[in-house]
């Protein structure tokens, strides 16, 4: 590769590589190292204690619960949207795709706010909900709703280009041979899109578990009740309990690393890449 540019002197090349390495080192590697270094700065015992403390456990449980609800919802939506958009022609398709993409450009804070305006005590449905004893804001339902909103496009936009690229010949053949619609989806479409689906699920899950802004607005920060892991990190940090904050943060950083490793191995081993999202 480097032989492509004979006129580039070795010195220039080394300087450019060094510049990029320093940049990546300062902005990507160092923050990641800092999380683990701070978490372990008082030894493993303190680290472990911060993770088994009841509020931390309940935050971990809530984060897993929220992801377990919102990721499958986005998978179902993503499959439906991709099926409708990729397998059929209709007017307004580009508008629909733009609308599906919309949540990516919304600030997480705004994503949380809209649900407060709908369901909060001052919101439209708020008084009715209070009368009927239904809690949405400052409770788990709003955390799930906010998470679903910020992760809304993840699976869909991974699948739409993929299924569009694959066309409808395979499905039409299966149907012509007498398979039912659902069977066709299960046996033909799903195997074709499995890596793309997994890819979307991975990224969706990482965002769902790590979402902070939107969840922070709707959760009310009730310790042990509506605290997800990122919110728990914030509370601990603001209480100057740095070691505990970084200990919980290190779990989230591990999640990020696992996500990156799986995502990268999907790209390497299966030749699947969102970039060529074929």
């Amino acid at each position: 590769m480097s032989a492509r540019l004979p006129n580039h002197s070795l010195a220039v090349r080394r300087l450019l590589i060094l510049g990029a390495l320093v940049f990546i080192g300062f902005f990507l590697v160092l923050p990641l190292v800092a999380v683990f270094a701070e978490a372990l700065s008082k030894g493993f015992a303190t680290y472990g204690a911060a993770l088994v403390e009841p509020d931390a456990i309940s935050a971990i449980k809530l984060t897993l619960l929220v992801a377990a609800i919102s990721v499958p919802l986005n998978v179902v939506f993503g499959l439906c949207a991709a099926w409708a958009i990729a397998k059929f022609d209709f007017r307004g398709k580009s508008v629909l795709v733009t609308l599906i993409d919309l949540p990516f450009s919304i600030s997480p804070v705004v994503a949380g706010l809209v649900y407060v305006l709908l369901f909060g005590a001052q919101g439209w449905a708020g008084p009715w909900l209070i009368d009927h004893g239904v809690r949405i804001i400052f409770a788990v339902p709003s955390i799930v709703l906010a998470t679903v909103l910020v992760t809304f496009p993840f699976v869909a936009r991974e699948l739409i280009p993929l299924m569009q690229e694959q066309g409808r010949n395979d499905e039409e053949a299966a149907l012509a041979l007498g398979a039912s619609g659902f069977r066709t989806f299960l046996r033909v479409t799903l195997p074709n899109i499995r890596w793309g689906l997994l890819y979307g699920v991975l990224l969706c899950n990482a965002r769902a578990m790590g979402e902070f802004g939107a969840v922070s607005v709707v959760s009310g920060h009730l310790r042990g009740l509506t605290n997800t892991m990122p919110l728990h990190v914030e509370i601990l940090y603001n209480e100057y309990n740095f070691v505990a904050a970084f200990a919980v943060a290190s779990l989230l950083a591990l999640l990020a690393l696992v996500t990156l490793v799986l995502k990268t191995s999907l790209e390497w081993k299966f030749g699947y890449s969102h970039r060529s999202a074929r």
């Binding site: 990546i24 990507l28 923050p31 990641l32 800092a34 999380v35 701070e38 990224l203 990482a206 578990m209 790590g210 979402e211 902070f212 802004g213 892991m229 990122p230 919110l231 990190v233 914030e234 940090y237 904050a245 970084f246 943060a249 989230l252 950083a253 999640l255 990020a256 690393l257 996500t259 990156l260 995502k263």
Partner: peptide, 15 residues
């Protein structure tokens, strides 16, 4: 390079 996509923002913030 994709770390900022995967790392929760609060973690990045405190780090």
């Amino acid at each position: 390079v994709d770390l900022p996509f995967a790392l929760p923002t609060a973690v990045a913030g405190i780090a």
